[in-house]
Write a protein that binds this DNA or RNA. Sequence first.
DNA 1: TACTAATGCAACCACAAAAGTTACGAGTGC
DNA 2: GCACTCGTAACTTTTGTGGTTGCATTAGTA
Lengths: 140, 140
Amino acid sequence: MKRNSRLSLALHTLGHMAADSKHMRTSADIADHAGTNPVVVRRVLGKLREAGLLTSEKGHAGGWRLARAAQDITLADVYLALDERLVASSPNDDVPTCVVEHRLQNKITAVMEEIERSLIERLSKTNIAEVQDIPEPSHG
Amino acid sequence: MKRNSRLSLALHTLGHMAADSKHMRTSADIADHAGTNPVVVRRVLGKLREAGLLTSEKGHAGGWRLARAAQDITLADVYLALDERLVASSPNDDVPTCVVEHRLQNKITAVMEEIERSLIERLSKTNIAEVQDIPEPSHG
DNA sequence: TACTAATGCAACCACAAAAGTTACGAGTGC
DNA sequence: GCACTCGTAACTTTTGTGGTTGCATTAGTA
Ligand code: FES
Ligand code: FES
């Protein structure tokens, strides 16, 4: 897979859920469909649950379901739930060690933060329901 | 180090070069200052040379120098020279395998490409000379 | 109660990407 | 010729991430 495989997995799954939001899915089913492992699915979807996008239920008839309407879940919600930072770096990166480097880093991070914000802004304009517009009858 | 260490190394070095653009620096000096290895420095600066931002000379008095005025080297130049793609993914990623996933991926990549362009646009508005504004006398 | 099916979570293994390292060839000035 | 430098290839080490196994926990069902 690639760098943002978590994001891909999350969006793919949410896309299917948006198409049939009542259906309860198990991590095994999802993993099978996405070509990965149930534990990986639970790891990723667990993040989405922490962010309040999904609910999960244990036990016999358990599984995963949308926590709210698909129209109310944006790509930004998903992106932030997985706390990926494509552009901006984490604040705890490295000590400046020097004035010049400190200044340099400030300028760079300022630009990166700006871009990160515009990314999130842009992502918040598309929701899960839009992403799941099936052109033809689904095949499975 | 972290994910964009190449970019950090490049900008840090260019920042110093912008402050004293006549001075010829060896990869050993640069590596020593940046806390890394001469070969790593040559690898990174080699990319910048390919992009026409730097020149290198072999031999006794050899080393590295800016290929043009610091004001004419933007952050976008550096970013593109290192051919990093912070946001957008490479085109050869993975086969769609399905219509739904294909559609999904299309939407995502469209957003990402848009963000990548705005990132480059933004980076092109700052040049190396701006990044290197020393507030106090340098310490080394 | 016993059984089954699901999540939750911790601890590992496997693999890949990147930095770091070593080595050596090839220019260049003394 | 010698010292110094880049250029590059090959290798090792580190790190991040997905994959895997195992088990406790929870919930439905007979
Ligand atoms: S790190 Fe301090 S001057 Fe470069
Ligand atoms: S990959 Fe999910 S429907 Fe084809």
